[in-house]
Amino acid sequence: MDCVFCAIVAGDLPASTVYDDDRVLAFADIRPATTGHLLVVPKRHAADLAALEPQDGARMFQVAQRLAAGLRNSPLEPEGVNLFLADGEVAGQEVFHAHLHVLPRRTGDGFGVRADFASPSREELDRVAGLVRDALGDPG
């Protein structure tokens, strides 16, 4: 099976499961960025965010919210929690089955999103917003 997360969902590969329901499975990441790093994956294969069923995406975030609370209440006692979803190789996606990282954070843990943030003008922000808005078609 080419999709490692599909194999985990099917029970063909082991996982340290934290949560399991009819739509998603959550388990400990085998290459954790921080102690307690969890992954939430939809049981239905979706290579990326565009292919993800909206109900599965919603469930992923609902479960991630619950897991974040569980992490905060656990003896791991993180100071914060990040949710991270990489969509596409250039965004850092390495496993092409949509998945949401739940990352407990501690001061100095070394994880972070770093960038040279810009300060565009309101006109430029409006222009970019218009491009995206137009691409949506029906904003529904």
Rank of each mutant, 00 (worst) to 15 (best):
L38C: 04
H99V: 02
E79C: 09
T34F: 10
V9L: 13
V63S: 08
Q65Y: 13
R105M: 02
L49C: 06
A69G: 11
P75R: 14
R122S: 12
M1R: 14
A64D: 03
A91R: 12
F96C: 01
M60V: 03
A129D: 11
G80T: 08
D12G: 06
D116R: 12
V132A: 07
R114Q: 15
D56W: 09
H37E: 08
D48L: 03
R127L: 05
V18S: 02
V113S: 08
S121N: 06
D22V: 11
V81F: 06
P139G: 04
L100A: 06
A58M: 00
A69W: 12
A98V: 13
G130F: 04
G92N: 04
L25R: 06
L103C: 11
G140D: 13
A33R: 05
R106Y: 12
A135F: 11
P104R: 00
H37K: 08
R127C: 07
A50F: 09
L83G: 03
Q62P: 03
A118Q: 14
G88V: 01
R114S: 15
L136N: 05
L71I: 12
A28Q: 08
E89L: 02
F96V: 01
E79D: 13
D87W: 02
Q62T: 14
L39E: 03
F84W: 15
F84H: 10
L13M: 09
P42E: 02
D109G: 05
G70A: 09
A115G: 11
H101E: 09
Q93K: 04
V18G: 02
V40T: 01
A7V: 08
C6M: 13
G88C: 01
H97N: 05
E53D: 15
P120Y: 08
L136Y: 07
R31E: 15
H37Q: 08
V132W: 14
F117E: 12
V95H: 06
A86C: 06
L38N: 01
V95F: 07
L85W: 02
H99F: 07
C6T: 10
F84Y: 13
C3A: 05
